[in-house]
């Protein structure tokens, strides 16, 4: 077992109450590993403290990257959220905490 942070990097973005997380392997050869290990279901479970809605995984084989669109994920959205990190900008590093094979 190892943390995702060992093999991939990520950036968090927000649109309203939707959190968007990219997941990009440092080495392109690790793209299939991400494809196999980091499913939408696992992301939803891993980020359950934050993500209340559906998680959609977009596969980008040409770019060798995954993109997770997480609905109902920023309490009420950046403008009215009481969270310290209302944008959810730090959540890229929450994703990278995930343990994979």
């Amino acid at each position: 077992m190892k943390k995702l942070a060992k093999i991939a990097h990520s950036r968090a973005g927000d649109k309203g109450n939707t959190l968007i997380l990219s997941l990009i392997p440092y080495e392109e050869k690790d793209y299939p590993v991400l494809l196999r290990e980091v499913t939408a279901e696992r992301v939803k479970k891993h980020l359950a403290f934050q993500v209340k809605g559906e998680v959609v995984r977009h596969e980008l084989p040409l770019l060798k990257a995954l993109l997770f669109t997480c609905h109902e994920a920023l309490t009420s959205g950046v403008t009215t959220s009481l969270a310290l990190d209302a944008h959810g900008k730090s959540l890229s590093y929450a994703l990278l905490e995930m343990e994979i094979e």
Binding site: R11, G13, D14, S22, I24, L60, L67
Partner: peptide, 16 residues
């Protein structure tokens, strides 16, 4: 390429 990939997908709800 790494900085560009992170930015390309930044705040993109549906990359298609």
């Amino acid at each position: 390429i790494r900085t560009a990939k992170e930015q390309l997908l930044y705040e993109v709800i549906d990359p298609f």
